[in-house]
Simulated assay, not measured.
Amino acid sequence: MRGARAAAPAATAAALAVVAAVHLGALLAGATTAVHMSKPALMPLLAAYVLARGGPRLLVVGLLFGCGGDTLLQTGRESLFLVGMGSFAVGHVCYLVLFARHGAGAARTYRLAAAYAAVWVTVLALLWAGLEADLRVPVALYSLLLTVMALGATRVGPWAAAGGVLFLLSDTLIAGGLAGWPQAPAPQFWIMLTYIAAQYLVAHGLLTHLRTGQERTKGAGRKPPGPFAARRGRQSWTADRASTMP
């Protein structure tokens, strides 16, 4: 049983890597069926990896809402686009709760918060004119929530912070397509590459932060030897030395 539990994180991580590779390869090859079959499996596999590592259930919930967003956006129906965006938004709220609960203090500096705010304002200003009128407010609100989530990720270490930045990049690529920005070749490939990496890094960063905190707590629980213990140690060493003398 213990061996199976120890192997579970590696097995789920390997399965995620395989499905991610299939999905990205299918995007490049234009294999629509493989794309549609593999995309909804990505976040559940990452959620299984989190569970296998003993991660918090709220992180699993956030990832599953990401799966909901993936599935809804994949339909291509305009009526479901905002619903899918809302599903992602719930996932971001889950992450924010986790960052607030387990993060190291408040957001690190006012300068960092100002930098993220400046990025949000700049990108939104560039997008605004190209967005359809009924998308402007939802995109503005969602992108604000995403930016706050990315800032919050800096509270749990560099891995999660990198994931937050990649999430911003991935969703900016999506919004740029909606606003009619010039697109790179195979735009969906780059969107999904940055998105998969973002979700993994956020999850991995939070798990690493929690594990480090647990190790520090255990270390703090070990009391250093007191003066009497040190004295007994010296007396024992003296006695041993005396017993060995001719």
Score class of each variant (00 low, 15 high):
Met1Pro: 13
Ala4Trp: 12
Ala4Phe: 13
Ala6Tyr: 07
Leu16Met: 02
Ala17Glu: 05
Ala20Arg: 10
Ala26Cys: 06
Leu27Arg: 06
Thr32Phe: 10
Ala34Ser: 08
Pro40Cys: 06
Met43Thr: 07
Leu45Val: 04
Leu46Ser: 01
Ala48Phe: 06
Tyr49Phe: 13
Val50Ala: 05
Arg57Trp: 14
Gly62Glu: 03
Leu63Tyr: 04
Leu63Asn: 00
Leu64His: 02
Gly68Lys: 05
Asp70Glu: 00
Thr71Asn: 01
Leu73Asp: 05
Gln74Ser: 12
Thr75Pro: 01
Ser79Glu: 15
Ser79His: 09
Leu82Met: 07
Val83Lys: 05
Gly84Thr: 02
Gly84Trp: 01
Ser87Thr: 00
Gly91Val: 02
Gly91Asp: 01
His92Gln: 13
Val97Ile: 11
Ala100Asp: 15
Arg101Trp: 08
Gly105Tyr: 11
Ala107Phe: 09
Thr109Ser: 14
Arg111Ile: 09
Trp120Ala: 12
Glu132Cys: 05
Asp134Gln: 12
Val139Leu: 01
Ala140Cys: 06
Leu141Val: 15
Ser143His: 12
Leu146Gln: 00
Val148Asn: 01
Ala150Asn: 06
Gly152Glu: 08
Gly152Gln: 08
Gly152His: 04
Ala153Glu: 01
Arg155Lys: 08
Pro158Gly: 08
Ala161Thr: 00
Ala162His: 00
Gly164Leu: 03
Gly164Arg: 00
Leu166Thr: 04
Leu168Lys: 07
Ser170Ala: 07
Leu173Met: 13
Leu173Phe: 12
Gly176Ser: 10
Gly176Lys: 13
Gly177Val: 11
Leu178Cys: 03
Gly180Lys: 04
Ala184Gly: 09
Ala184Lys: 03
Met192Ile: 03
Tyr195Ala: 07
Tyr195Ile: 03
Ile196Gln: 08
Ala198Ser: 13
Gln199Asp: 02
Ala203Trp: 10
His204Phe: 14
Gly205His: 04
His209Gln: 03
Leu210Tyr: 01
Leu210Asn: 02
Arg211Cys: 06
Gly213Asn: 09
Thr217Gln: 14
Thr217Ala: 15
Thr217Val: 10
Ala220Glu: 11
Gly226Cys: 05
Ala230Tyr: 03
Gly233Thr: 10
Arg234Lys: 13
Gln235Asn: 10
Ser236His: 12
Ser236Phe: 11
Asp240Pro: 09
Asp240Leu: 14
Pro246Asp: 08
